[in-house]
Amino acid sequence: MDLVTIAFYFFGALTIIFGAVVVFSKNIMYSAFSLLFTFFGIAGLYVLLNADFLAITQIMIYIGGILVLIIFGVMLTTRITGVDVKSGTMGKFQLATTGILTTVIAITLLIVFSSTKWYLKEVPAVESTVNDIGNKLLTNYLLAFEAASMLLLIAIVGAAFIARKK
């Protein structure tokens, strides 16, 4: 086992285990903090996939932005002293049905992923992807880039407008 294999299994286990904690935990604060470790494991997987820029973006936007927003949302919408911190689920029958359904979907995906012969291409070791991403964003994908900036502006204004006190 070389170091990359060990690192892959470490980050993969981190992602899957804490992803399961996010979904199955009864306490919503536990879920929110487990999401942190899941995002961190995914950032580690990005590093193993030679996506250095995406790994930093994952940590900065998901952990630094979206997760903080979600924790703020949890704290603002739950009465900490009451029983409301717990996040309810459905009845036993619906839970079992959903569990079977998602397990079937997961098994189908695993079979499809392992039985397909994917197109693979060997590549030499990559130095850094930042230059390539910058070039692509400002040439081939310029229109999508500008549209994304407009979308973010509209989302900020709209979110502030919706959430303000009347």
């Binding site: 899957i16 992803g19 996040s87 309810g88 689920t89 459905m90 839970l95 359904l101 979907i105």
Partner: peptide, 16 residues
């Protein structure tokens, strides 16, 4: 694939 199924389960079963 496993992460997707976990997320789908969470979306369907949770009320919060």
């Amino acid at each position: 694939a496993i992460l997707f199924s976990l997320g789908l389960y969470g979306i369907i079963t949770r009320k919060h």
